[in-house]
Design a protein around this nucleic acid. Structure first.
Length: 423
DNA sequence: TCTGGGGTCCTAGGACCC
DNA sequence: TCTGGGGTCCTAGGACCC
């Protein structure tokens, strides 16, 4: 049996850890640039606010109902996540961390009362991390996801729902809409609904070949899992990523090459830091720039450039230099740019790295030491950029904004709480 | 006026190899 | 006239997840 532990409205719950007066009050958390809503409390959901909606569209609602608004504080959320995971780790039940707010446990089939255990986990995490979670228990991970939805949706389950026999499985699947199945996203569910497949039960009843025809091997895996066959084993994110991406949307269009260069170099520095943190070396580099895709009345421009690096590297100045060259190959001064990014792929580990024939070991060592000092100095600075290359300029300062930062004057109780949103 | 960021996997088609 | 079979790697694009 698998147990899925899913934190409820995670970012909102994190804010409530440090603002307990917001319990019972509508709360939302925003994405970068305060652009979109990425987390909503149940109270905010009840007002009709949905995940992913642009913030400007719900400003009237926020104002009318005095919704508490937070810019995302992702460092803090990572700390909260670690507290939750530590609490789960102590259960000694094969913890598998799936994302910042989800984890699986592996339980023996003859474990005992699964529902009781699920509720015990809910209480333990609440006591130790002050984060509310829902638990779904089932023979496969996809079914555990289904169970967790029920646990979250219906208070009667008191936080934990179990699917451990045919009857419960069929009942649950017939009550689960096709788009709510793990692995079936918006596009696939739209297509499946056109085929008359509206629920997880409809999907499960399909012929295997039909599933392959409609989707692909991933679809088949989901189909098998819904039928109770374990296909998804290891979901744990590897410590080392295969690719890394640093990108931002800016709060205004960038019209000068210098500004775009500085942003690109900042992204290259972020990538370099992350590479070194996982002891990886990038072999391929890509840069992209794009105009505002929502400004449909003006001309669009979106382009990327790609290169195989002459040598695998995690040295920020080199990454920035190549990224700048790539930028120059696609930059068109006729446009203003709303979004840009740098990514690296085919990251190799330090052991796998093939030394170049003409490598100068002393130079490599100097670079390594320079980056080590840089990383150490920047580790505790807010933007990780106290010590930075000159080409970054002021980094992302003035290019992105977050106007709903934590405010110490907010902690006086719901009745006196005022949304930082300016009327 | 204002619309996120960071990942993984799969497929198809073309280049190239033996 | 008639033109195989099997493999890898690369890129672009599309799907999913959180």
């Amino acid at each position: 049996m698998f147990a899925l532990i899913d934190c409820n409205n995670f970012f909102v719950s994190c804010e409530r850890v440090r603002h307990p007066e917001l319990n019972g009050h509508p709360v939302i958390v925003l994405s970068n640039n305060d652009g979109c809503v990425v987390a909503i409390s149940n109270e905010a959901k009840a007002l009709g606010i949905t995940r992913g909606i642009p913030f400007f569209k719900i400003r009237p609602l926020v104002s009318r109902y005095n919704v508490a608004v937070f810019s995302g504080a992702h460092h803090y959320y990572a700390k909260c996540s670690e507290r939750v995971m530590q609490s789960l780790r102590e259960l000694d039940a094969g913890l598998e961390i799936y994302s910042i707010d989800e984890a699986f446990l592996h339980l023996d089939d003859d474990f005992g009362d699964f529902a009781d255990y699920g509720r015990y986990v809910v209480e333990k995490v609440w006591k130790e991390a002050v984060i509310p979670v829902s638990v779904g228990l089932a023979p496969t991970k996809t079914l555990a996801k289904v169970a967790a939805r029920f646990a979250k949706k219906y208070p009667g389950y008191r936080g934990a729902c179990v699917i451990d026999n045919e009857q419960k499985r069929l009942k649950a699947l017939s009550l689960t809409a096709i788009e709510d199945v793990w692995g079936i996203g918006r596009r696939l569910s739209r297509m499946l609904r056109l085929e008359g497949i509206n629920t997880a039960a409809d999907f499960m009843a399909l012929d295997r070949k039909e599933v392959r025809r409609l989707i692909n091997v991933n679809g088949e895996r989901t189909w098998r899992e819904l039928r109770g066959e374990v296909c998804i084993e290891d979901t744990e994110r590897r410590a080392e990523n295969k690719s890394l991406l640093a990108s931002r949307s800016f709060d205004h269009d960038l019209h000068s090459l210098l500004e775009v260069e500085q942003a690109i170099c900042t992204f290259a520095a972020i990538i370099g830091r992350k590479l070194r943190a996982q002891q990886g070396f990038a072999t391929d580099l890509e840069v992209f720039i794009a105009t505002n895709r929502f400004a449909t009345s003006s001309a669009q421009y979106s382009k990327s450039a790609y290169m195989h690096l002459p040598e695998p590297t995690c040295f920020t100045p080199l990454l920035a230099q190549y990224a700048t060259e790539l930028l120059h190959s696609i930059y068109n001064p006729a446009y203003g740019y709303k979004r840009a990014g740098v990514s690296v792929r085919h990251i190799m580990s330090s052991e796998a790295r093939q030394p170049g024939l003409f490598d100068d070991p002393r130079q490599l060592e100097k670079r390594r030491r320079l980056m080590r000092v840089t990383d150490r100095l920047n580790a505790s600075s807010p933007g990780h950029d106290t010590l930075r290359i000159a080409a970054m300029g002021d980094g992302l300062h003035g290019l992105v904004s977050a106007n709903f930062q934590e405010r110490p004057d907010l902690g006086e109780g719901v009745s006196t709480f005022r949304s930082p949103y300016p009327k």
